[in-house]
């Protein structure tokens, strides 16, 4: 990608106006997001603990005993994904809130970076957090609920989970950019986000269910997930700038 328009004036006095390529800026943003999270890991830790608590709560909802093992077989995929959802939403909610409150968001908006780059970078770093979290929660789930999964099933699960996460995070980060400034924005995020996720959860839970039985996802299922990813990515990249740019005020 080229940087800076050619139509601009010549700045003979000062050849200093450096602006990075969008790719360079993207990498820098993702890297520094990651470094920032790794300083204190507050978001990762809150997400992990929330996931752990949710798993414990499910043990109340479902009578889990050796005599009723088949109940767990019917519900485990759903348990796993609802846990992922509740835990990951914490990270999504923070995609902008913390930066906006500390003023850092304005600093990023002042950088010579296209809004779309900012969006993709934030999606990528949030995705990294969410995938890390899911790896941790999945192992925890296998241990706590005494489950196992075949190698083939695991591959299907991972592929479908990542396909789902991409859609989940692209739409989540977009909605997070809508709600961070609202009073009660954390609740609003969930109210707006969860219904939009119901359709892909419907698919991915079914895939996870098959995966536990050692079966691979069907082409139609994966196709659906990837199609949703593409749709959400397209919508997100077109709409994001309207959320971070100032509205100009009302007349």
């Amino acid at each position: 990608m080229s940087s800076g328009p050619q139509s601009g004036p010549q700045c003979g006095a000062s050849p200093s106006a450096t602006s990075p390529t969008q790719w360079g800026a993207y990498c820098a943003l993702v890297r520094w997001d990651w470094v920032r999270e790794m300083k204190k890991k507050t978001t990762l830790i809150s997400m992990g603990v929330m996931g752990l608590i949710t798993l414990f709560l499910f043990s109340f909802a479902i009578p889990i005993s050796s005599t009723k093992a088949e109940i767990l077989e019917d519900t485990r995929a759903g348990i796993l994904w609802v846990t992922f959802l509740f835990a990951a939403t914490i990270g999504i909610d923070r995609a902008f809130r913390n930066d906006a409150e500390s003023g850092l968001l304005e600093g990023l908006l002042l950088a010579p970076v296209e809004r779309m780059t900012l969006y993709f970078a934030r999606v990528t770093s949030t995705l990294l957090f969410v995938v890390t979290l899911q790896g941790f929660l999945f192992v925890l789930f296998l241990v706590l609920f005494n489950q196992s999964i075949s190698g083939e099933g695991l591959v299907g699960l991972i592929v479908s989970a990542i396909a789902t996460d991409v859609g989940f995070v692209t739409i989540g980060v977009l909605i997070s950019a809508m709600t961070w400034s609202l009073p009660g924005g954390d609740v609003m995020l969930r109210i707006l986000l969860f219904p939009m996720l119901l359709p892909i959860l419907n698919v991915t839970v079914e895939v996870a269910d098959r995966a536990f039985d050692g079966r691979a996802p069907t082409a139609q299922q994966l196709g659906m997930l990837f199609a949703v990813d593409a749709l959400f990515l397209g919508a997100g990249s077109l709409l994001f700038e309207h959320l971070v740019n100032d509205s100009g005020g009302s007349s």
Binding site: S181, A235, H242
Partner: peptide, 13 residues
Amino acid sequence: ARRRQISAVYGIL
């Protein structure tokens, strides 16, 4: 103005 902007984006989505 902010409400209009957010609503329009959400409406499209």
